[in-house]
Design a protein around this nucleic acid. Structure first.
Lengths: 277, 277
DNA sequence: AATGTCCATAATTTGTTCCGATACCAGATC
DNA sequence: GATCTGGTATCGGAACAAATTATGGACATT
């Protein structure tokens, strides 16, 4: 009986799938399979019924679940009780712009609730930091990258804009339109390039950095903009999000970290990441 | 936090010594040292004060002890609760003669109390069995051997025998004496050979197998005998145990087992062995 | 002083765990 | 039905962790 096996068992139980558990635990699927088999051998009983769409706990598995959870919680509590709460561990996170304040603050909240001992500092992603929350394309080659969200970029139109009436929008429809361009945005750059390739142009009306200002200008009917498809954008009544039939782009936002980040810092971060999915 | 580390910590705590814990856990001393250090790193605090005559738990170590014991007990209880009590595991032990009924039955009692699930069968050590309790000299070369007791052989004299008056006894004093010879006893054979080498002889009055009969004949004043130095022999008032100045022999009684004995059987056995020391 | 005991460290060997690739199975889709 | 998709089990080799032997230093005991 080892803790690792119980952790894998719990993850599998909660996920209802060995593969999903493997993704959550950041190990390969065979590791989980082997650990569960070992546990089953030790207990002398099957814990899961395997079938094509995942695994279903047996009666024994269901019986084990609360025990395993309890044991795991106990072991965590023991460690916790020895780590002084006053020896707060500093954690510096580099946050890219335009993450969506709501979503991001929720994520940070979850992280800090999970791990009392962190003392968090937020900086720009170019500055020295323990880990960064950025798009996958900003990730350095030596860094690991753990995805958190996927943002599909949409065209934001002011409510009542003539184009909102068209059932299908393509790049050609945007020719000559007023546009709010967000700098440092990969999706924007890609979009402009796609226009250029088709010899289409838009009229830049503003160059700015934050999504919040873009949105405000769209809502003020200054022009169109590309914005990520966030719930808070969909909720706006004075702005409409539209899909483009011949251009689409999603960026993956996630946690980038050096391979030699201490696991005491890394693990809670990764857990906060998977908790989002 | 892993179970193994906690096991080592507990053993060290109870033994008050890393080396002793290593012996009990059947691993080398550095393994324990490393595991404890790892645990200390994880908890962020020292668990033992090291000094020359062993280790003494710190306050943190004392605080950890009941928690660790609890966690370990919990994990064992979980495993236990899944192993059906009705699927008793057969265990066949080969017991050599002359082990000392009292001592041996105590050992077996301890074993069975420790492990409810065993269904014990006792056979002679030549018969097929899972493990044997024999002297080290009876151990086959491929078998592992775990010592349990050491038996020093002594000369048993009837109370009132003339030789009991001599302060020092040597082999030469035994020349021509009546003797009760126990067959299949390594110590007896060695003893007779030693006599032979010094061209001394004794008068064999009986050849028998069990220590109990030997003792009875000594007590009945039939002659002298070699018997192991057991408390029950010392307690006899009609028999005296004496040391020989120029001959001595101790045999090591222990558990002999094949290297591929399943650990589910082996571990409780080894635990019963170390519990004796 | 010399010896013995104990713990820590270093270097090596051994044994597990993990991974990627592959095989296989069952249900959904065409 | 053939194919595709998403799932699990199994295999051989790579990476890692754990155990071992050997050694050194600190403190008692002889």
């Amino acid at each position: 009986m080892d803790i690792r096996g119980l952790r894998y068992f719990l993850a599998t139980y909660k996920a209802g799938s060995v593969s999903a558990a493997a993704r959550q635990c950041h190990v390969a699927q065979p590791s989980i399979s082997a650990a569960i088999k070992q546990l089953e051998d030790e207990l002398g009983t099957a814990l899961f019924d395997r079938h094509a769409k995942g695994v279903r706990p047996t009666a024994a598995g269901q019986r084990l679940y609360p025990m395993a959870a309890g044991l795991l919680a106990d072991s965590a509590a023991i460690v916790q009780s020895f780590r002084q709460p006053d020896q707060r561990q500093p954690l510096t996170l580099g946050l890219m712009r335009s993450l969506g304040a709501q979503r991001m603050s929720g994520w940070l909240q979850r992280l800090l609730q999970m791990e009392e001992r962190f003392e968090l500092t937020l900086v720009n992603p170019e500055e020295p930091c323990d880990a960064r929350i950025i798009t996958s394309s900003m990730c350095h080659p030596h860094e690991h990258f753990e995805p958190i969200w996927q943002d599909a970029y949409r065209l934001a139109l002011p409510a009542g804009h003539p184009l909102t009436l068209k059932p299908r929008l393509g790049l050609a429809d945007l020719h000559g339109q007023s546009f709010i361009i967000r700098e440092h945005c990969e999706a924007n750059a890609h979009f402009l390039q796609a226009l250029h390739q088709q010899q289409l142009t838009v009229q830049p009306r503003a160059h700015l950095r934050t999504i919040e200002y873009s949105r405000a200008l769209v809502q003020a009917n200054v022009g169109l903009a590309l914005v990520p498809d966030w719930p808070e954008h969909r909720k706006c009544t004075d702005m409409v999000l539209a899909e483009l039939s011949d251009w689409q782009r999603t960026v993956v936002v996630g946690l980038a970290y050096s391979p030699d980040l201490p696991s005491a810092l890394l693990e809670p971060l990764l857990q906060a990441c998977t908790a989002c999915q």
